[in-house]
Computed example of a mutant assay.
Amino acid sequence: MSAPDVYLRSVGSALPGERIDNAMLARRFGQNRLWEQWVAMFVGTSSRYLSVDLDTAEVRFSLADLGETAARAALSRAGITAQDVDVVVLGTATPDQLMPATVNLIADRLGVNNVPTYQMQSGCTGALQALDVARQLIVSGRHRTVLVMGGDVCAKHFDLSVEFGDRSPGEQINALLFGDGAGAAVLSAEPGPGNQAVVRDLFVRFTGLGRPPGQTVEWFGLADRGDDRPGAFEDYKAIERGVPVLAVEILDELLDRTGWAKDELDVVFPPQLSGRMTQTIVKEMGLAPATREVSCVAQTGNNGNALPFLQLEQGVHELAPGSRSVLVAVESSKWIKAGLALEVLYPKG
């Protein structure tokens, strides 16, 4: 007996504040026009959205704020209410607090109660880890409708009092790459209105045995608050070498598991590190000319676990019946591979 279909009913997202382009960053950090051009050329990210005000250092949005907005959008588009939700799952690397869990704060705001809630602690594959948990709960027959969220807010890791030029390269790159945001999706055992996107495959796999972390994000408590370790550090060269290779491996595995040919793919949602890195990854994937790539990182910044939802929101509702798409995600802090395959069914009758 085959497993029941799991439908992607809807997707929603939320970005904080105004768009911050490279010129605004250059002015804030005391950099010149050449620096701005260097960011555009070598990083390839033209803008991002931040939950912290660059001028005042005031934190204006929390992950709970953004998650609630994204969740309400996803529920509305799915044509359901919070009372129809059986489970809530959140994937994030940057919860608002260690306790209470941010997923529970969002559930409370939405009016969800007396249902299981789960929070996945992970980098850029956390969104797919959350989707995988949701899918398995639906396939088991225990639950029928799951609200899945993913997002990251880096405000607590921004120290605007430190001169930008005094930071190490590993710290500087974080200020250029990252942004904030949240996304949400409704997975269900029942189809909704419009196109019926079905999850054909979804896997998540730790692949970091013996590999040094590509990124480290600290969480300081009272005992080590005065520690001089940087709050976040990135080995961008290791990521630059490793992610394209892993992305190709994920794509090949998805094709093998689904039995699809590469030239049968209508849309690919590639990993979103930066504008430049995404271009490199797509080139390594060797996609067919007719395959459409859906990326957003150059405009939104790398907002971690929000990115898969932002990509899906851009592309999935435009997919025609019979179309096939895959989403590839890589978590480089301790190396996790994740992939999602979607197929849009033809309307019944």
Rank of each mutant, 00 (worst) to 15 (best):
A341W: 02
A40P: 00
E249Y: 00
E68S: 02
T291C: 13
K348I: 08
T300H: 09
C154G: 00
G44K: 03
G141N: 05
R276Q: 11
Y7N: 06
S274M: 07
G322E: 02
V294G: 01
L287I: 07
V59H: 00
D96K: 13
Q196A: 14
L202Y: 11
D224A: 09
D86A: 10
T145G: 06
T125C: 06
D53F: 02
N113R: 15
E253V: 03
F61I: 00
D132G: 10
M120I: 14
P95R: 03
Q215K: 11
L342N: 09
R19C: 10
A74K: 06
H317T: 13
Q31N: 05
S295R: 08
A101P: 08
E343V: 10
R167T: 08
V282H: 06
E68N: 00
E293K: 06
T207Y: 00
Q97K: 15
E313H: 10
G12W: 02
N114G: 05
G221A: 02
L176N: 13
F178A: 09
M41C: 12
L187D: 08
G79V: 03
A288S: 14
A71K: 04
L105S: 15
V294Y: 01
G259V: 06
P244I: 11
V89I: 15
T280K: 08
W35P: 12
R229W: 08
R144H: 13
E313C: 01
T56W: 03
D224Y: 04
I239Q: 02
L312R: 02
V316L: 07
K262V: 12
L160G: 06
T300F: 07
Q121R: 14
P212D: 12
A175N: 14
A127I: 09
V162L: 15
